[in-house]
Simulated assay, not measured.
Amino acid sequence: MKLWLVDRLVEEEAARISPFDRGFTLGDGLFETLRLAGGAVLRLDAHLARLAAGAGVLGIPLPALDLGAALVVTAQANQLADGVLRLTLTRGVGPRGVLPPAVPTPTLVITAAPAGPALPPARLVIAQTTRRNARSPLAQVKSLNYLDGILARQEAARRGADDAVLLNTEDRVAETTIANVFAVIDGALVTPPVADGALPGVMRAAVLSEGAEARPLDAFDLAQADEIFLTSALGIRSVSAIEGRALSVFTAAARLRARIAGA
């Protein structure tokens, strides 16, 4: 595999990142997962806008290069027209301690992979081991630190589920470990607001543009939902069960997949 490292393509075997890179030592960085279809990166502008917003929150300068072109070049170098790209941006090498260097030298890595098989409808549980801190600035940032999500995903696996819904510290629904949550309740298509800890997902924004409403939800709301589905940059995934309650309606998800390109 070939990957983009800092400012050029390199072979995977030749790629070298310092053990003192803050992305490795502290999780000090950001990433974007992007879908590639027909040789084009879907929703590229939205992804780059979110990356820039996150970099602004963390104070990481963006590389002085055309990131869109670098993504396409990486896909082409791996002979991929359809698949998944991941862009990782760290603050780069820094001294010991938490305080970042005054003038960071960021590390950029772009990798490409074939698309996996279509996933079946997901089985969800509500995480008991961790909560989303909606008041943290990091709630709006796609950071490299995924430990809350990892703990919740491990819990889901132990409980025989595919993913876990994260509540915030006020018992409101935020998202799952890897996706935004949508529900059909009393005929309305709704999703948690970013103020409750939902990441501003690019596919979430596309579904909101189709008439969905952002409003606070809790576990009781999900227990009453006629349909639930998850959204990420890779598509829309229906939910077949939550906390053991079976769901058999997938109408809204199917309609949105038909309407939204790349869903």
Rank of each mutant, 00 (worst) to 15 (best):
34 L>Y: 01
1 M>V: 15
22 R>N: 03
41 V>S: 01
190 V>G: 09
249 V>P: 02
241 A>L: 09
63 P>I: 08
152 A>N: 07
142 K>F: 02
195 A>F: 08
116 G>S: 03
177 T>I: 03
174 A>S: 12
136 S>G: 06
38 G>Q: 12
257 R>F: 12
15 A>N: 04
159 R>I: 03
100 P>T: 08
185 I>C: 08
139 A>S: 08
68 G>W: 02
100 P>R: 06
126 I>D: 03
196 D>I: 11
150 I>K: 13
105 T>H: 15
12 E>T: 14
101 P>W: 10
78 N>M: 07
7 D>A: 14
48 L>G: 00
261 A>P: 11
46 A>G: 10
156 A>I: 01
26 L>N: 02
95 P>W: 07
62 L>A: 00
54 G>E: 04
57 V>P: 05
146 Y>M: 10
248 S>M: 13
53 A>P: 11
37 A>V: 07
183 A>N: 04
37 A>F: 10
178 I>H: 11
199 L>A: 11
172 R>W: 01
119 L>R: 05
150 I>R: 15
91 R>M: 03
204 R>E: 14
250 F>I: 08
195 A>C: 10
34 L>V: 03
181 V>F: 08
190 V>T: 10
163 D>W: 00
209 S>G: 15
33 T>Q: 06
39 G>R: 11
199 L>M: 15
113 A>V: 09
50 R>L: 14
26 L>Y: 02
227 E>R: 02
166 L>V: 00
198 A>Y: 09
259 R>W: 14
188 A>G: 15
172 R>M: 03
187 G>N: 01
60 I>F: 04
231 T>N: 13
150 I>H: 14
114 P>N: 01
182 F>R: 03
61 P>N: 09
144 L>H: 00
194 V>W: 14
249 V>M: 06
182 F>M: 05
52 A>G: 04
162 D>P: 02
130 T>W: 01
134 A>G: 10
261 A>I: 13
215 R>C: 10
41 V>R: 01
258 A>T: 15
102 A>E: 13
190 V>M: 10
33 T>G: 04
